[in-house]
Design a protein around this nucleic acid. Structure first.
Lengths: 185, 185
DNA sequence: CTGATCATGTAATTCGTTACATGATTCC
DNA sequence: GGAATCATGTAACGAATTACATGATCAG
């Protein structure tokens, strides 16, 4: 693979329409951010690089006084995106979860302290699930046909996923609560 | 927070016993790696830094001809670890999942291509679950008491978690398979 | 008129991986 | 004897965040 994953985030976003760097960031923040984040510090330089490579084309669009540059995919860019989407390369999958990390090392804590941390972890996932639901609510329903789009399916997936983690936390809480705090050990 | 999360991985590992930098890396690779990775390039410099801060102490242990340095927590290190473990700071939770990213942008693909990518994603999680099970099998059972340790609970959690994702993939596959490949649209 | 949003970019810094270099010991 | 493992470290590079700087327009 030659391009960074973030480059594909950009190409992917451009496949959805003609947008600015600012738009890309806004879109990322309500969608891929939950499984692939990107910041301005990456997006603008990457757009310039992709333009040099001939994968995107940016056109000034200042008519209304706003200085901006809208980007779109070139045929080569469309090809590059498609190739990545269908490539059999091993998938980059990476998780950084401070809650699990803490729990892993929690043997030395008091039972109540450990329990409290699992509750915090649950709260974090409840927060993410709530965020996802608010995004779902904000997106207009696809009234056109019965078929759901991939972005929507991904969103529903995410909600289910975090709900399921919340359930796992609850189960763990019950389990840890069953261990007597001061019983003979 | 002053210390990096990786510093806490190290402190946590040292709370389990007196080990070398090499040992820490080996331990990480069969445990926290699945929710918090760390490389040699981080571990050795971080150990040096933690020693300067007085949170760990390294002692040469070359008796058997092997040049090595075993580290242990100082009381200050133990306090720092404990403080982090019980702190109410927001948890760093971050996912980078190329499979979901691809799926998100897959609307333009042919149904069979899309389906194939979900299968690849499932295969990836099946692989992780298998790895976790092999780690579980390699770890000796805690015959001493009925209570399970946090590392073991975390491992079981991980297995359940990836199994559940595998199930979600299968469900998605059924769903996508139901969409006729060439029907009127 | 003021704060929010639109819009683009850069610089500094941190974080983390990979590859390299080195050498001893243990297992087969 | 040779490969795998133990063991420590560094250098180069790449990826990503954060903060900063700037300025226009829009909504109230």
């Amino acid at each position: 693979m030659e391009l960074s994953k973030t480059a594909y985030v950009i190409l992917g976003m451009l496949s959805l329409g003609r947008v600015t760097g600012y738009d890309i960031k806004s879109l990322v923040d309500v969608s891929t951010r939950f499984f692939w984040a990107a910041s301005y510090g990456q997006i603008y330089p990457e757009l310039a690089k992709l333009e040099e490579l001939g994968l995107v084309r940016g056109d000034r669009d200042d008519e209304d006084g706003r200085r901006r540059k809208r980007y779109q995919l070139t045929p080569a860019g469309r090809r590059a995106l498609r190739q990545w989407l269908t490539s059999p390369e091993p998938l980059h999958i990476e998780l950084r979860h401070e809650g699990l990390l803490k729990f892993f090392f929690s043997d030395a804590l008091e039972p109540e302290e450990r329990l409290e941390q699992v509750r915090r972890m649950r709260a974090a996932h409840e927060g993410i699930a709530a965020k996802l639901r608010s995004i779902e609510a904000a997106a207009e329903e696809p009234t056109n046909s019965g078929e759901k789009t991939c972005p929507r399916l991904t969103l529903e997936w995410g909600i289910e996923h975090h709900d399921s983690i919340v359930e796992s936390c609850r189960e763990m809480e019950r389990r840890l609560d069953a261990v007597p705090a001061k019983a003979g050990r």
